[in-house]
Amino acid sequence: MRLTPDAKGVFPIAPTPFHPDGRIDDASIDRMTDFYGEIGAAGLTVLGMMGEAPKLDGAEAIAVASRVIRRTRLPVIIGVSAPGFAAMGSLARAVMEAGAAGVMIAPPPSLRTDDQIVGYYAQAAEVIGPDVPFVIQDYPLTLSVVMTPGVIRRIVADNANCVMLKHEDWPGLEKISALRAFQRDGSMRPISILCGNGGLFLDFECERGADGANTGYAFPEMLVDVVRLSAAGERAQAHDIFDAHLPLLRYEQQPGVGLAVRKYVLMRRGILASDAQRKPAGGLSATARAEVDFLLERLGRHDPRARV
């Protein structure tokens, strides 16, 4: 099952479950993977930035990815970003042999010019191989690499195995419109556009032409709802469910503590056994946990799935 340019829906970014002592929690991986399959996700992404991928060694990364791939029938994208191409190439080969649908590649922060960005992706595509579908991760707020719509068009034109953009620019609505305009005028072949940023702008991203979401949130069912309702033309209903979740979504989007919030809520929901992150990591204070509990209680008035 290979990733294609017509992929649509929600591909949640899966966190990596850990025991409090830092060991990988296999039972929670299985429970989490089953959960994503039950809520209508179209696929999964493992070893993304919110999956604490840099905290895993090579063998652990392959083991986590392989376990998820074996457990689900959904297409699984694996993050293979690495400081060097040797590590990227070996991880990409291993996960594709395990049955991954494709890989996601983020640009290193050292890239500054358009030609450097385009050249990097050409080299990365050569390293992983022309038969491996890949996703561009466009996340300038964290990676400090700014990709214009024109640069993305060049990457897509130069690499036949580029099938998806993970769009995480902010503000980025006009970028989606520009890329879809390229498709309409025939200057760029169609690719899938799935959006990140915790789903914070998903309501309007869908209206601008995004195919879905490729991000985390403690209630990915809401993301599935928004994408489905938007595709059906049910604009008011899509915004209603999105607006109900917006206070918690906003709280989870805080830099530095967002993953702690997400894991805490997933633990409250019984999906993860622990909200532990592997060190180095920050946690939630007692006050922060109480604030999240307050937001869950308020959300539960509008969405029964939040009554944990």
Rank of each mutant, 00 (worst) to 15 (best):
T142W: 14
L143R: 12
L143H: 10
V145M: 04
V145W: 11
V146W: 14
T148D: 09
P149E: 09
G150T: 11
G150N: 08
G150L: 06
V151Q: 10
V151P: 10
V151A: 13
I152E: 12
I152K: 08
I152F: 09
I152L: 13
R153M: 13
R154L: 11
I155S: 04
V156A: 10
A157W: 12
D158K: 08
N159K: 06
A160Q: 15
N161V: 11
N161E: 15
C162T: 15
C162A: 15
C162I: 09
V163K: 14
M164L: 15
M164I: 13
M164F: 15
K166Y: 14
K166R: 13
H167D: 15
H167N: 14
E168I: 10
D169S: 14
W170Y: 14
W170R: 10
G172E: 02
G172H: 10
G172Q: 05
L173E: 15
L173K: 08
L173W: 12
E174S: 14
S177R: 15
A178F: 13
A178S: 13
L179T: 09
R180F: 12
R180I: 13
F182E: 15
F182G: 08
Q183Y: 09
Q183P: 07
R184T: 10
R184C: 11
G186V: 11
S187T: 12
M188E: 09
M188W: 05
P190D: 07
P190F: 07
P190N: 07
I191E: 04
I191Y: 12
S192W: 13
S192H: 11
I193L: 01
L194V: 12
C195V: 12
G196R: 03
N197L: 08
G198F: 09
G198I: 08
F201C: 09
F201I: 06
F201P: 07
F201E: 06
L202V: 13
L202S: 02
L202P: 10
D203V: 05
E205R: 00
R208H: 09
G209P: 06
A210I: 01
A210E: 01
A210D: 01
G212K: 00
G212S: 04
A213C: 10
A213K: 03
A213G: 07
N214P: 08
T215D: 03
G216I: 06
Y217G: 08
Y217I: 08
A218W: 03
F219H: 05
F219Y: 15
P220Y: 01
E221G: 05
E221R: 00
V224G: 03
V224K: 01
D225H: 01
D225V: 00
V226N: 01
V227F: 02
R228S: 10
L229G: 02
L229N: 01
S230L: 01
A231N: 02
A231G: 09
A231K: 05
G233C: 00
E234N: 03
E234H: 04
E234F: 02
R235K: 00
R235E: 02
R235H: 02
A236Q: 07
A236H: 05
A236Y: 05
Q237N: 03
A238P: 05
A238E: 00
H239L: 00
H239M: 00
I241T: 08
